[in-house]
Simulated assay, not measured.
Amino acid sequence: MSGRYIDENVKRRLYAESMGYCMNPNCRCNLFAGTGDIIEKAHIDPYCKTADNSFENLVLLCPNCHTNFDKNNAFTPQEILSWKKTRQEELKNFFEKKFTTFEELEAAVVPLLMENKTIYENYYKKNNKKLWDKFEPVILINNRKLKLLLKTNLNLIQKQQEEWYSNLASIHLFMAHIEEFEATRGDDEKNREILFPVEINSIFGVVPVEESLIPSTECLELLIKKLKEQEKFVAIEMGVEHPCILMVENNKTVQVFLDDAPRLRQIYYNYKCFKKTNVRLESLNFALKYIRNKKVPFKFINDENLREISINHIKMIFVYEYCLGQVKLMEMLPKEDTVIVNLHNWNGESCISRQAYERAEKMNVKLLTMDAFYEYVQEIK
């Protein structure tokens, strides 16, 4: 092994420290250009005298500054050392900015995630080792920036005590991944203990993930109400395999899938929309999907109340009760000819009490279990 060998761990720290620019604050030349780089590793105290390949004794420079330092004596070692401190302060001042909204944080984070994604997919996943080796330092640099941005703005991330339901837990996992990624991985050691959590791209709207629907219909209804107040609501599509909401975000219309759980959790957190579940969204979407599959037209009477639709010119209300009783029915005050469907079907016919049926008959209201609902939809012409 050459005496000039620089440990992989040191090189990765140098890349992250540089932010991709020559460390000379009066130069700041971009070290990455086209399909290559112009990175040169300069020893602050000459290697021939110290044999020191430590992080503290190395600095990344462009070829011109390296020549001016080594051959032209344009800079002193003390000046070079001060550049490290200057860059560290620049990094902190720029990327430890405290944001007031998640949208501001998102605007800073997304370009870095997108660049990392492009490099990873085009070079690493396509086994283009030459270009991956060239551009992996860009990911190291972006990750250092991301870590500072996220660490300073953790208060803007949705959190929950249960880790599986917490975006903050995914952020902490991502920061641990960044630390491991920056540490060292030589050619003979490519496996990582902590992989990039895909939830990160979901949280920031880069790539959706497919999970289960967040249970609460009421959360979604409240979100629609608040979006309307801010003129950011466009449309809601349900009764499909992947239901979604169209909304305005950063002055453009975006599609948010309701089974993209990390993303939707973050949006609920941003708009303070978490509410107790009464009607399970998955059950409601299943019922609406059944109606749609039977080619029966329906529409929401009010977008802010997804539990009420108009079907065949009749009002249909969906509830989710273990046993729908007459007290609940009377509290609802349904108008005549309303159809009420109990989505809770775990106890079969017993999900609607005999007293509720009797009261419904007097009120001229139809009560349906899920089995009866299927028959009712099939009979609609």
Rank of each mutant, 00 (worst) to 15 (best):
Tyr5Phe: 15
Ile6His: 01
Glu8Thr: 09
Asn9Ala: 14
Lys11Ser: 12
Tyr21Val: 15
Pro25Tyr: 10
Asn26Val: 06
Cys27Met: 10
Arg28Leu: 15
Cys29Ile: 13
Asn30Glu: 13
Leu31Ser: 02
Ala33Trp: 04
Thr35Tyr: 11
Thr35Ser: 13
His43Thr: 06
Pro46Ser: 15
Tyr47Asp: 11
Thr50Phe: 09
Ala51Leu: 15
Leu60Thr: 05
Leu61His: 03
Pro63Glu: 09
Phe69Thr: 02
Asp70Glu: 15
Lys71His: 15
Ala74Pro: 03
Pro77Ala: 09
Pro77Lys: 08
Arg87Cys: 00
Glu89Cys: 08
Lys92Asn: 14
Asn93His: 10
Phe94Lys: 14
Phe95His: 12
Glu96His: 08
Thr100Pro: 00
Glu103His: 10
Ala107Val: 15
Val109Tyr: 02
Glu115Asn: 12
Tyr124Arg: 14
Asn127Gly: 07
Trp132Thr: 04
Phe135Pro: 00
Leu140Tyr: 03
Leu140Val: 06
Asn142Pro: 08
Lys147Asp: 11
Gln158Glu: 10
Lys159Cys: 06
Leu168Ile: 01
Leu168Asp: 02
Leu168Trp: 01
Ser170Gln: 10
Ser170Asn: 12
Ile171Cys: 04
Ile171Asp: 01
Phe174Met: 07
His177Gln: 04
His177Trp: 04
Ile178Ala: 07
Phe181Ser: 05
Gly186Lys: 08
Asp187Phe: 09
Lys190Asp: 08
Arg192Gln: 14
Ile194Ala: 05
Phe196Thr: 06
Pro197Asp: 06
Val198Ser: 12
Ile200Leu: 11
Ile200His: 01
Phe204Gly: 02
Val206Ile: 14
Val207Tyr: 09
Val209Gly: 07
Glu210Ile: 10
Thr217Pro: 01
Thr217Leu: 03
Leu222Ser: 07
Lys226Arg: 15
Lys228Asn: 13
Glu229Cys: 08
Gln230Arg: 13
Glu231Phe: 14
Val234Leu: 12
Ala235Arg: 11
Met238Val: 05
Gly239Cys: 09
His242Ile: 07
His242Asp: 10
Pro243Val: 02
Ile245Ala: 00
Glu249Asn: 12
Asn250Met: 10
Lys252Asp: 03
Val254Tyr: 11
Val256Pro: 01
Phe257Gln: 03
Asp260Phe: 00
Ala261Leu: 08
Arg263Glu: 04
Leu264Val: 14
Tyr269Arg: 05
Asn270Gln: 15
Tyr271Asn: 10
Lys275Val: 13
Lys276Asn: 12
Thr277Ile: 12
Asn278Gln: 13
Leu284Gly: 03
Phe286Glu: 06
Asn293Tyr: 13
Asn293Arg: 13
Lys294Val: 03
Pro297Gln: 10
Phe298Val: 12
Lys299Pro: 07
Lys299Met: 13
Ile301Lys: 08
Ile301Gly: 07
Glu308Asp: 11
Glu308Trp: 05
Ser310Met: 11
Ile314Val: 14
Lys315Trp: 01
Met316Arg: 04
Ile317Asp: 03
Val319Glu: 02
Tyr322Val: 14
Leu324Cys: 04
Val327Tyr: 13
Glu331Ser: 13
Lys335Asn: 11
Glu336Tyr: 06
Glu336Pro: 05
Thr338Leu: 05
Leu343Arg: 04
Cys351Met: 05
Ile352His: 06
Gln355Met: 11
Ala356Leu: 05
Arg359Thr: 13
Lys362Phe: 10
Leu367Cys: 06
Leu368Ile: 08
Thr369Gly: 07
Thr369Ala: 07
Met370Ala: 07
Ala372Lys: 14
Phe373Val: 06
